[in-house]
């Protein structure tokens, strides 16, 4: 599956063009009847009219949010699959999304719905705690981390946290009414302010991931290989987990628990790109962005008034893929 450097670079450019096209298409879709010419004018000849404002402050942030969340989740999933050598690793399945969701629901329960602009830090804390617990479970004991235990441990932590979430929602119908759309995963109504809030975390997360890409490739080939190459595998893994928390936490803070992107995209990328994480990561980021943008456009088009939460669209596509992987990629 090794491709030449120039082919890979060219492919990456093509994907980037697709992502840009996806952003443009996304900006053109919406409830308000705003034509393509208006969109062009909003950027070329901005006059502060309401249509311009809608494009600049509502549609563009929404499209950016979708692309950013998709990129974060895909990269986080790729890193998780790499360091755990588990084809099924994904922030959703391993309970990280559930941790962030529980933290956010608790926040709303305690402080009320008006605290909604301050979801982000709580989502991070929740994601970090869940990631630490699941990672700890996976690496407890002698010997190496066991993919199987990680998957089951993650699933159990996810089950546990979501039953806590349910508990909180049962206690307060108000909280449920406020939060339930968010719980399904949605990028509706995300504004630039929110994106600005989380962008530092995302940047650090991406930088960390890219910096670790060589080490993760070695880890993917086996712990012995990595150690043989003189790596401090413990340090690599800890830093990689940190980047996963930053990326997945940001994604949940923006869009709620969107599942399966982190699972599906890296596999698709690996199929075309091979095993080198220096290429897998940028490809995952761009394709993740395209996929979530597409899913968001579909959610808006299928039922224009009942916006389907985008997390549902991704689940419908991703879940069968997970089962396919479990059937065919797991050999033990």
């Amino acid at each position: 599956m090794l491709r030449s450097r120039s082919t890979l670079l060219f492919g990456l450019l093509v994907c980037a063009v697709f992502l840009a096209a996806g952003l443009v298409v996304s900006v053109n879709f919406g409830v308000a009847g705003i034509g393509v010419t208006d969109v062009v004018r909003a950027f070329g000849d901005y006059d502060g009219s309401r249509d311009d404002l809608i494009i600049r402050t509502i549609r563009v942030p929404r499209a950016l949010a979708a692309a950013l969340v998709g990129a974060c989740l895909a990269v986080a999933g790729a890193i998780m699959q790499g360091i755990t050598r588990n084809p099924l690793a994904d922030p959703g399945i391993l309970g990280i999304n559930a941790g962030a969701a529980f933290a956010v629901v608790t926040t709303v329960f305690v402080f009320g719905g008006t605290a909604s602009s301050t979801f982000a830090p709580f989502a991070f804390v929740g994601a970090a705690i869940a990631a630490t617990v699941v990672y700890g479970i996976g690496s407890m004991g002698r010997g190496r981390m066991r993919p199987m235990r990680l998957a089951i441990g993650g699933a159990a932590v996810a089950a546990l946290l979501s039953s806590f979430t349910t508990a909180t929602l049962v206690l307060s119908e108000q909280t449920m009414d406020t939060i339930r759309f968010w719980l399904a995963g949605s990028v509706l109504g995300r504004d630039l302010e929110l994106l600005q809030q989380i962008s530092p975390y995302v940047l650090v997360g991406f930088a960390l991931a890219l910096a670790l890409s060589r080490q993760v490739t070695a880890l993917m080939l086996g712990e012995e290989v990595a150690s043989g190459l003189g790596q401090k595998t413990g340090l690599t893994k800890s830093l990689a987990v940190l980047s996963v928390v930053l990326l997945a936490g940001s994604a949940v803070a923006v869009a709620g628990p969107v599942g399966f992107i982190g699972l599906v995209v890296p596999h698709a990328v690996r199929f075309f790109v091979g095993v080198d994480y220096r290429w897998i990561l940028p490809y995952s980021a761009i394709i993740g962005g395209i996929v979530l943008l597409g899913a968001d456009i579909i959610s808006r088009v299928v039922l224009p008034v009942h916006e389907i939460p985008v997390g549902v669209t991704t689940a419908v596509v991703g879940a069968p893929f997970f089962i396919y992987l479990a059937r065919n990629k797991v050999s033990q």
């Binding site: 998957a151 339930r180 389907i308 939460p309 997390g311 689940a315 089962i323 992987l325 797991v330």
Partner: peptide, 26 residues
């Protein structure tokens, strides 16, 4: 294989969970 059973089960669980969340959301 019991292992595959558990893993496929986790996947099914995730699918069904997503469905239930959707219904509660809408």
């Amino acid at each position: 294989s019991p292992l595959r059973l558990v893993l496929v089960g986790i996947g099914l669980s995730a699918v069904a969970g997503a469905g239930a969340t959707l219904l509660i959301a809408v």
